[in-house]
Write a protein that binds this DNA or RNA. Structure first.
Length: 833
DNA sequence: TTAGGGTTACTT
DNA sequence: AAGTAACCCTAA
């Protein structure tokens, strides 16, 4: 896809989002929905929009209603001031990075240190006009070359008549207008629902705008406008764009054209069914009649999206949307992901607050997505302004456009993406890094309940919307709680006790026994579920904290013990019954060669416990070091054994991530099995995971192979440049304890789930580093050979000899090494004689 | 698991 | 470059 099409396709989105973001009353969830619906928004565009979004986020984060009381503010003597010259993006990014997720969600103390209000006020005051406002101004002032035409089509014509067009000075009205423009009988319901949803989220102002409507053209007028103007939009716009030979007005025209297209998009009823628009307007809207949103527990995003994709397939949905949805998986690349509703906005007790993944920028998949998005078929897609623009501008590269009024947004050139520059970027990984809970490896979104919390809100909105569409008077709605959401009848209703939740339902319509809290308050299924998820997450967080504390306690103890003398350790080691199967812990100091510390557990349970805790300890306390072994992963020697090569082959043959995961789990099991017959983990400097400390539960056997298998898997799974090697993989627990297994498994899966290349090139680097034999080893080898060699049998049982001299032989020695060494020794003796 | 041939890295 | 030790690969 060429750059012109690309930027033309996203500009309308950017402008609309920017306009909406500038309205305080527009719920962030709406913005989120919009952003998620929008095509990829390249870095090069939409700076104003991002800035506006960032400001909105800041406003939400530091909203006095957001739990940050004045008392709390003043309680903090020293507050971090914010330079007003910095961009909101910068500041937001800084805050997000420096603030734990929990504090972001709950407006916790970490937020209190920021003295943001002056900054926010300043930024709000200095925020430039958004692009649509500028467009409108230019139309009204007649400075736009096509002012007349645009005025007519945009409705600005009616300004004098009292039934005004969109008042950009009051962007809230834009929402109202958008809504109003959809008063086509077919579409207004669903459109209203979107607005209603917004209203339910607390945007009373929007409701007022809707009600007064004095700034809006009558729906008749609007419809007439739509009917008159839409048909000619394409050609006329094409004409406009054809005038791009005049470079002086190109950019402006382009932008204005796009804007007009946006307006037209909203007006255009052609082939746009209500559901389509609904889907366009708010991702995840699934009619109840289709049976999706009835399943509240399944109100996950994925489900919803699937539903929408199906919709896409059924309808002639614009390719841009369709393909984007179909490649939804790619969206984990979205760089700005500020998760969790609470992180972005005051907790809405209604539970209606939808998901707050604010997604602005995407990473390098741009090209791919673009190409998927915009097949230039030449056909005029219905209603989609971005495509319309794109079609007509395809042969007019926007690189030629000049920029005059909307600096960055009108810089339509699609520049090569530059990674630099502050953005709202926040990857999920970053978030994980940021989230201290992740350090403990416990509180994560791995179970999806963070999203669940949000998705249920979305499901609820959809449910309410659909109910509204199906059985309720649009104007009256049913939020009066006098009629049942299900059957629309009055009578004795159970009214949800959660604030702002309008849901009322007959007990019998509920389909299940109603849920009451301790005070006997009824909660609708949505809110009940939402509350349950909240409780769950809270409990999870508590558990995580407790675990961390425990980890720290035990971890400190282990570290202290490391300093014990080598002699004692060797003694202990020799005492260790090999293959005894007890759950000892060896804490090996690799820098000291073979310093090992045996931490004998008193009971199996305690031992398991210590194992767990030790693992955790080294995850959390050494967290910063985790990158170090990873960095060395690429350089470290990785022995390739037969089983490892087999494991590699298996992995290389896999294409599905799921398969890979299963395979890895299988590999883990294999590794666990190997531990029964392998020896101590070798870590004398040339092996992976040679951190200063390591925790190795030992069953008197080597876990080397197992570990190397793990390491190899990790190595393979981690693409170059994304070194991830953690103790999880190195400190393989050899105990039989199931909990330990699961613990390891959990960690392992987390790291392995990253998208990977699954390419592996065997390199000479993988050869083991040479380690000279000591005279002691040679002696024991001689001794062993003499002892075990049978005059009748030419073969020498090297394995037995290895076991025989296990206390002397370095742990890295294998039977074949003994054989080779003996060969060399024989050579040497033959020479000398 | 072992034997034997080959390879690699290091030293002379 | 040659020699050597340690390591690797493969067939049995």
């Amino acid at each position: 896809m060429d750059g012109a099409s690309d930027c033309a396709s996203v500009l309308p989105w950017i402008w609309v989002i920017e306009a909406l973001a500038s309205v305080k009353e527009v719920d962030v969830s709406i913005l989120h929905d919009l952003i998620e619906m929008a095509p990829e928004l390249p870095d090069s565009l939409g700076k104003n929009m991002r800035e506006m979004l960032a400001l909105r986020c800041l406003e939400v984060l530091f909203d006095p209603c957001n739990g940050i009381t004045n008392d709390a503010r003043s309680a903090l003597a020293s507050k971090v001031g914010v330079d007003t010259w910095k961009s909101c993006e910068d500041i937001l990014e800084q805050i997000v990075q420096e603030t734990s997720l929990s504090d972001l969600k709950m407006a916790g103390p970490e937020l209190l240190k920021w003295d943001m209000l002056p900054f926010i006020n300043h930024k709000r005051a200095c925020m430039p006009k958004f692009a649509l406002q500028k467009l409108k101004d230019s139309i009204l002032e007649g400075t736009h070359p096509f002012a007349e035409s645009l005025k007519e089509r945009s409705g600005l014509l009616f300004t004098a008549g009292g039934k005004g067009p969109v008042n950009m000075d009051n962007p809230s009205a834009l929402i109202g207008r958008v809504n109003e423009s959809c008063f086509d009988a077919q579409h207004m319901g669903v459109k209203l629902n979107l607005i209603r949803r917004t209203i339910k989220d607390g945007n009373k102002l929007l409701e007022n705008d809707l009600g007064t409507g004095n700034l809006l053209p009558s729906k008749r007028e609007r419809n007439a406008l739509s009917a008159e103007n839409m048909v000619g939009d394409f050609h006329e716009n094409q004409y406009i764009l054809n005038d791009y030979d005049n470079p002086n007005i190109n950019a402006k025209k382009q932008k204005q054209f796009v804007s007009s297209s946006i307006l037209t998009m909203e007006e255009n009823p052609v082939t746009l069914s209500g559901r389509e628009f609904l889907e366009l307007s708010s991702e995840g809207f699934i009619p109840v009649s289709e049976g999706e949103s009835c399943d509240l527990a399944k109100g996950q995003k994925g489900t919803l999206k699937e539903g929408r994709v199906l919709e896409d397939k059924r309808d002639e949905y614009p390719a841009s949307m369709k393909s984007r949805h179909n490649t939804e998986d790619g969206f984990h690349h979205i760089q700005l992901e500020i998760r969790s509703t609470g992180a972005m906005m005051p907790q809405d007790t209604s539970g209606d607050v939808p998901h707050q993944d604010i997604s602005v920028d995407k990473d390098n998949d741009d090209d791919k997505h673009c190409s998927e998005q915009m097949p230039l078929t030449g056909a005029l897609p219905p209603y989609n302004a971005s495509m319309l623009v794109q079609d007509t501008s395809a042969d007019k590269p926007c690189q030629n456009m000049s920029v005059d009024d909307v600096e960055d947004d009108s810089n339509l050139c699609v520049e090569p993406r530059t990674s630099g520059g502050p953005r709202l970027d926040k990857t999920l990984e970053n978030e994980e890094d940021m989230d201290p809970s992740h350090e403990a490896g416990t509180l994560s979104d791995s179970d999806g309940y963070q999203n669940e919390h949000i998705d249920v809100a979305i499901s609820k909105s959809e449910f309410l919307s659909s109910q509204c569409t199906n059985s309720h008077d649009l104007s009256a709605g049913w939020t009066d709680q006098t009629c049942c959401i299900k059957c629309n009848e009055g009578g004795q209703l159970l009214v949800c006790n959660r604030s702002n939740c309008p849901l009322a339902v007959h007990e019998i319509c509920l389909g299940s026994s109603p849920r009451f809290d301790d005070n006997g308050n009824f909660y609708c299924p949505f809110c009940a579920y939402s509350l349950a998820v909240s409780e769950y997450l809270e409990a999870k967080k508590k558990a995580s904290l407790a675990r961390k504390e425990l980890t720290w306690l035990f971890g400190s103890g282990l570290k202290c013990k490391q300093k014990e003398p080598v002699e004692r350790v060797h003694t202990e080691r020799n005492k260790l019954p090999r293959n005894s199967g007890d759950k000892d812990l060896l804490v090996r100091n690799h820098e000291d060669g073979y310093l090992e510390e045996r931490v004998k557990d008193q009971t199996d349970h305690e031992g398991d416990h210590v194992n767990k805790v030790s693992n955790l300890h080294f995850r959390s306390a050494d967290d910063k070091q985790q990158a170090e072994p990873s960095a060395s992963c690429d350089n470290v020697y990785l022995p390739l054994r037969e089983e490892e090569a087999a494991g590699m082959t298996r992995i290389l043959n896999l294409t599905e991530e799921k398969e890979v995961e299963e395979e890895l789990i299988q590999a883990e099991r294999v590794a666990e099995g190997d531990k029964q017959e392998t020896a101590d983990h070798e870590c004398d400097g040339d092996y992976l995971s040679c951190r200063s400390t390591d925790v190795i539960p030992v069953n008197e056997t080597r876990v080397e192979e197992g570990i190397q298998q793990e390491v190899l898997d990790q190595h393979i799974a981690d693409p170059p440049g994304e070194p991830v090697c953690t103790l999880d993989n190195c400190a393989v627990d050899t105990s039989d304890d199931e909990s330990n297994k699961s613990l390891i498994s959990n960690y392992s899966v987390r790291f392995r789930r990253r998208p990977s290349q699954y390419t592996y090139t065997p390199s000479p680097q993988l050869r083991r580093k040479k380690v000279p034999w000591t005279s002691e080893e040679e002696e024991i080898l001689k001794e062993g050979v003499q002892k075990f060699s049978d005059t009748n049998d030419s073969t020498i049982p090297w394995k037995k000899i290895l076991e025989f001299g296990a206390d002397v032989f370095l742990n890295r020695r294998r039977a074949v090494d003994l054989k080779d060494k003996w060969r060399n020794m024989c050579k040497g003796s033959a020479k000398s004689t």
